[in-house]
Write a protein that binds this DNA or RNA. Structure first.
Lengths: 226, 226
DNA sequence: AATCCCGTCATTGTTGACAATATGAAGTCA
DNA sequence: TGACTTCATATTGTCAACAATGACGGGATT
């Protein structure tokens, strides 16, 4: 009766999830030097599974580890954030193209419905950038999985998005392009619905390119200091 | 005096490298189910560092692990191999474009020299596909690092190339496009030397696209059975 | 005879203790 | 006074034993 619940996960997986979300949510600030014992106490873990999780996170580029010196959360510079968007541009362009070729009609209908709910959420929670960011994440998530390209989805969902989201949370309202992004999303879905892969790729690339330029501009204005 | 040598690496790193090369070289066949104690005996390791390395490899997609059931080398289907090339196409296209914008003149000169040595190696070791494959790998490696895009290079060198090389070794002479590839390489370098990023991207994409079509054709002919 | 259940076994997951190394402070010398 | 060396400490890396879980085989029952 001591809540065995859903013990399907191993401790290392648990540690991995905890650490990853802690990093993404900003509970562990970039550049922060963290000790293993401290983390163990914080997440009720022992060092074995923790170290395994740390290894995975390092392999994914969220942590940097120097032998015998400790581990610290990766701190991405403004330039590197821009580079991330350049990568997203080409990879998500491919994802959109393949999604247009391979998504089922049901998935596309679902995607449209999702956009409707996003629109409603934006109208209701005017200015609540958080929900919008989550909606944006949801949209891109669906495209990635819809590409039916396992490795592509893994790289986008497992690597890039976590790093981007990490900065989204920290900068809170990085985007600030409320309705504009939704319109772009709609056009992309339209292209996918028409099975026009080439157009979907083009629109997606332009969409991410615009987001990058937006961030670049704000950094230049000093609004976003990283 | 017991050869301390260069102990800068930790055991887990050592284990990671051993496992990774073993997988890439085909010493551990895809689908093969491997026990931890067996691996420990094979590579003179203890289970601690080994497990950490296994975690990293799983995170990179070279292994699949089922709790309490063991770990086995990932087996990629023919379709998935093709998908890998689709990803390479867009990512290396970006790498080529950024390399054209950012590589130093010295790096470009070095790259040209590398191609000369490749040409010589191909002529000398006629038909020795191994050396050619290594030369090809070297070329793409240099472009990736030359892009000055850390994350892009990490994803290419740390994720994709290992999976592609895994199949290169297994299929031994997968390529079979000896001089053609070298010519394409030369044209790409030429575009980079002229700082024409757009052209470099286009040529690189076409280059990888051709390689993909070549493999696709051979699979269809039944020459390559995966 | 086939299927289901149960117990043993091997393998994985976890834990705590031990060894090795880098960081930091104190002391000494130029 | 400043810089270098030395030592102590805390932290990380490693190891071997313990616990838990899934897999395999034998037996009984339908």
């Amino acid at each position: 009766m001591n809540q065995p619940v859903i013990q399907s996960l191993t401790r290392a997986d648990e540690a991995f999830d905890c650490l990853q979300t802690a990093i993404v949510m900003g509970d562990l600030a970039p550049g922060e030097k963290i000790g293993e014992v401290e983390l163990c106490a914080r997440f009720n873990l022992t060092r074995g599974p923790l170290r395994e999780a740390l290894g995975r996170l390092e392999s994914r580029g969220l942590l940097v580890r120097k032998p015998h010196a400790g581990v610290k959360v990766v701190s991405v510079s403004a330039d590197e954030l821009i580079e991330l968007y350049r990568i997203r541009e080409v990879m998500e362009g491919l994802a959109a193209r393949q999604a247009a070729e391979r998504m089922t009609d049901a998935e596309i209908a679902d995607l449209k419905a999702t956009l409707d709910s996003h629109e409603q959420m934006i109208e209701e929670a005017q200015g609540q950038a958080y929900y919008q960011a989550e909606g944006d994440y949801d949209f891109h998530h669906r495209i990635a999985t819809g590409s039916r390209n396992a490795k592509l989805a893994q790289m986008l969902l497992g690597d890039l998005y976590y790093m981007v989201r990490m900065y989204r949370y920290r900068l809170s309202t990085s985007a600030g392009r409320p309705h504009m992004a939704l319109g772009e999303h709609r056009r992309i879905v339209e292209a996918i619905a028409q099975r026009d892969g080439e157009l979907a790729e083009f629109l997606m690339k332009r969409h991410i390119n615009a987001a990058r330029q937006n961030i670049e501009q704000k950094i230049k204005q000093g609004v976003l200091t990283i």
